[in-house]
């Protein structure tokens, strides 16, 4: 039986990898913002797993609460960044009719 914290951690790492690949390979700006959110979710999953593992190691009941507080803060930050990015993408699309950065146009 695999240790659940390890499973969550590995899953998080895989999600981070998928998201990073998307972030670097995609040109459509909205897709890149979605990829950013995928990476963020992966990082938060790893963070949660780290908090769980820390609690198990210390023998206390329940998980270490600090990572949970930090994850919530991180989600808020990612939400704000996403909102600004989407707003910029919309304004850019209205001004130029493009959905990619000028240097990514083919």
């Amino acid at each position: 039986m695999i240790d659940p914290a390890l499973l969550y951690g590995l899953t998080g790492a895989a999600v981070v990898g998928l998201g990073l690949y998307g972030f670097l390979s995609l040109r459509h700006l909205l897709r890149r913002v979605l990829a950013f959110n995928v990476v963020g979710s992966g990082i938060f999953l790893m963070f949660g797993a780290a908090g769980y593992r820390g609690a198990v190691a210390e023998g206390t009941a329940g998980a270490d609460p600090v990572p949970q507080a930090l994850i919530i803060t991180g989600i808020v930050v990612a939400l704000a960044a996403t909102a600004l990015a989407v707003g910029l993408i919309l304004a850019h699309a209205r001004a130029t009719g493009r959905r990619t950065l000028p240097e990514d146009d083919t």
Binding site: L29, R32, V33, A81, L88, H92, T96, L101
Partner: peptide
Amino acid sequence: AAALRYMVFAL
């Protein structure tokens, strides 16, 4: 466009 490029790098 400059702001978006900045944003992509910053993210």
